[in-house]
């Protein structure tokens, strides 16, 4: 065992300080140390995307990052995107368009989709399928996931226009 180190990360706007071994995978830091259980553990082999979080503006599979790498970083999880009383347009669209079945992949899907829409506010269906390729839905409900993201994009663009 290597010595525990002191780490400081910002999660959903809150600074967190703790001691951990450098080899701890970030998904475990989030879930088990900080009790932020939105990001899920699906495959744990960098494939399924259920553990996706946003780190300094990048969508990252948090099962494939050591806590030591994340030291000093700014992290957003699904909890920081919206809650029951203030749903993000993507969360609302997933609800309205049945973008989830069992819901296990949903936090990763929505977290990834926020970044996708930030980079491409007017995606085509194909852009969405390509941009969401790192997230797997084992219920295979892709059709409605794509629909939800399209709907959220339209809603967000309309809101932006109305504000201008």
């Amino acid at each position: 065992m290597s010595k525990k180190q002191h780490y400081k990360i910002t999660v959903n706007g809150k600074e967190e300080e703790f001691l951990a071994e450098p080899r701890e995978l970030l998904i475990y830091t989030l879930r088990e140390r900080l009790n932020i259980t939105g990001p899920h553990i699906g495959c744990e082999t960098s494939h399924c995307g259920a553990c996706t979080v946003t780190i300094d503006g990048k969508s990252v599979k948090s099962c494939t990052m050591f806590v030591a790498q994340a030291d000093g970083k700014d992290i957003t999880t699904i909890e920081g995107i919206g809650g029951p009383d203030d749903l993000h347009p993507l969360q609302n669209a997933f609800k309205e368009h049945h973008g989830l079945q069992c819901g296990y992949c949903t936090p990763g899907m929505i977290t990834r989709a926020t970044k996708l829409l930030e980079e491409n506010p007017n995606p085509t269906e194909e852009d969405i399928r390509f941009g969401m390729a790192g997230n797997i839905c084992r219920c295979t409900g892709y059709q409605n996931i794509v629909k939800s993201i399209m709907a959220a994009a339209a809603e967000m663009n309309a809101a932006k226009e109305a504000a201008e």
Binding site: S46, G49, T52, K58, S59, V60, K61, T64, M65, R112, L116, G131, M132, A133, G134
Partner: peptide, 9 residues
């Protein structure tokens, strides 16, 4: 190569 998440890293 890979998928969007992997390509950021």
């Amino acid at each position: 190569i890979a998928d969007p998440q992997v390509r950021y890293m």
